Amino acid sequence: MQLLRCYRSGRALVLLPLGLIAAVCVVDVLTPREVHLGPLLVAAPAVTAAFAGPRLTALIGALAVGAQLFIGAARGTIGSQNIQVQVAALVIVSGLIVLFRLVLDRRERQLSQSRTVARAVQEVLLPPLPERSGPLRMAGLYLAAQDEAALGGDLYAAARTEDSTRLLIADVRGKGLPAIDHAALLLGAFRAASHRRPTLPWLAAHLDGAMRWDSRQWHTEGTPDTEEAFATALLLDIPDREEVVRFVNCGHPDPVLICCGRAEAHTLVAEAVAPPLGIGPLSGSVAYAVASFAFSPGDELLLHTDGVLEARDADGAFFPLAARAVVWAAARPTGTPDDLLRRLRDDLLAHACGRLRDDMAAVAISRPDR
């Protein structure tokens, strides 16, 4: 149905250059000889190139040239130098417009192929979260800052143990392929180790060591260090039979708990926040503090990267996540994770005028009422 509407819309748009050609022909023939409207015919292929491909554009250009010859024949001036110059100019300009349309189509095909590859990479590295994990319901959201990109350095993942759900949300420093490479490294390391039921500090140390070793394994004593690769991360463990969330924060934005019509961010004291993953020497050790808070039936938990907090409006003001979370909590106390992420997406894009400056990822988790 949508393709049919697009087809009909395209057919209707063709009437615009055809009507322009017909109008110029009629008006030019009926006006005095000193009035020449033929040069306006060049607008017909130019308008066509805005909505059609090179073939239709070339056809409209040929019709425009034919119309110019018709005007010259009707006026009896087809052999004049003025008509010949106008026809030649119309042929040259129409040819350039068709060439422009060909180049534009080629770039659009390349962009489409790039987006296809990016979507394939995203499906491999960042598959959708399962809707249910034990008693929990989950949903994930990823928004890329660049239109041609589908994946960057923001990431999330979930894994099951025998009696709990493990979650990771992280933000890798940098952009482009290096960020995607380190994101893939973290995701692989988390998926390989999280289901073995290690403690959260052990899991954090494992991810930290993976990033450190990957970025520095080829360094020698005389080799200068390149830019340091690191990632902020939040590791969580949510037991099936305990109404609690345990987490380790490695320099990441705080989780937001929505419950009882209110919202609160669980901020740790500075001493309890570990440094981002990948910072420090290979042999260094970090003490990872495990924090916890209650997570009762009916509560919802929102995890996010700093792309949410750093979204700006036209005046440069940051996105007021805390204030918006309170509004969401009051408006929809029994919503689903998908509902929460939909609210976040709509409010975030409205605040940023539809254009994010940085990639963002978010995960919503709820523990439904029994």
Rank of each mutant, 00 (worst) to 15 (best):
A331K: 09
T305V: 09
L302M: 05
T334S: 14
L321E: 06
W328F: 07
L282S: 08
T336R: 10
L282G: 09
F318A: 11
A314K: 14
V308K: 02
W328L: 01
A311K: 03
H304M: 10
D315W: 12
L277H: 07
T334Q: 15
L302P: 00
A329C: 02
A314N: 12
L277D: 02
F295E: 03
D299L: 00
A330N: 13
V290W: 09
P275T: 03
A330E: 15
R312T: 11
A331T: 12
D306N: 08
G278E: 07
E300Y: 12
W328E: 04
F318C: 08
T336P: 04
S285N: 13
F318D: 07
V286W: 03
S283A: 15
L321A: 00
V327Q: 15
P275Y: 06
P337D: 02
V286A: 03
A294G: 08
G278T: 11
T334G: 11
I279F: 08
F293Y: 08
V286T: 13
P276D: 00
A323L: 12
G298V: 02
D313L: 08
S292N: 10
P281F: 08
A322G: 11
H304T: 09
A329I: 05
F295V: 07
F293V: 03
P275F: 03
L282P: 04
